[in-house]
């Protein structure tokens, strides 16, 4: 048996729009991954603890409220401080093009904006998975 890829899909912050996150979760399940879904309004602290307990390979963060520049890097920072910087963080949602380079600089490895075909996300996961 081979190792299963596990992915946490989480929505940090206060926005309650979870349709995109649910769509991605469902599509990743259909692609054969084990997806842990925690629902809306998660703190970065809760996301990081969940990711470590669940021993995930990836965290997909979805945010539509505009707080991505604070919350996404906070997750990466907490992971690093807990010795879990090897977990790969992806971002999705309404993220302005101009913010993407800054997010990548802070350790978010890929950002998928609205309209991204799911196969692009899967291709990314397959290309970087361990």
């Amino acid at each position: 048996m081979s190792k299963k890829i596990r992915i946490l899909i989480a929505k940090p912050g206060l926005d309650g729009h979870d349709r995109g996150a649910k769509y991605v979760a469902r599509a990743l399940k259909d692609a054969g991954y084990e997806v842990i879904y925690t629902g809306i309004r998660q703190t970065p602290e809760a996301i990081v603890k969940t990711a470590i307990q669940e021993d995930v390979d990836f965290i997909g963060l979805s945010l539509l409220s505009g707080a991505h520049n604070e919350l996404f890097p906070k997750v990466v920072e907490l992971l690093r401080s807990r010795n879990a910087g090897d977990i790969i963080v992806l971002g999705g949602g309404v993220i302005p093009e101009a913010d993407i380079p800054g997010l990548k600089e802070k350790g978010i490895q890929a950002v998928f904006t609205p309209g991204t075909p799911i196969r692009d996300i899967i291709a990314f996961i397959e290309s970087v998975k361990r």
Binding site: L28, K29, E34, V35, I36, Y37, T38, E45, K49, T50
Partner: peptide, 15 residues
């Protein structure tokens, strides 16, 4: 694949 969603209802204990 799988959707593991049980902890959604217990997430207040996550921290």
């Amino acid at each position: 694949g799988a959707i593991l969603g049980d902890r959604l209802r217990m997430q207040k204990h996550a921290t």
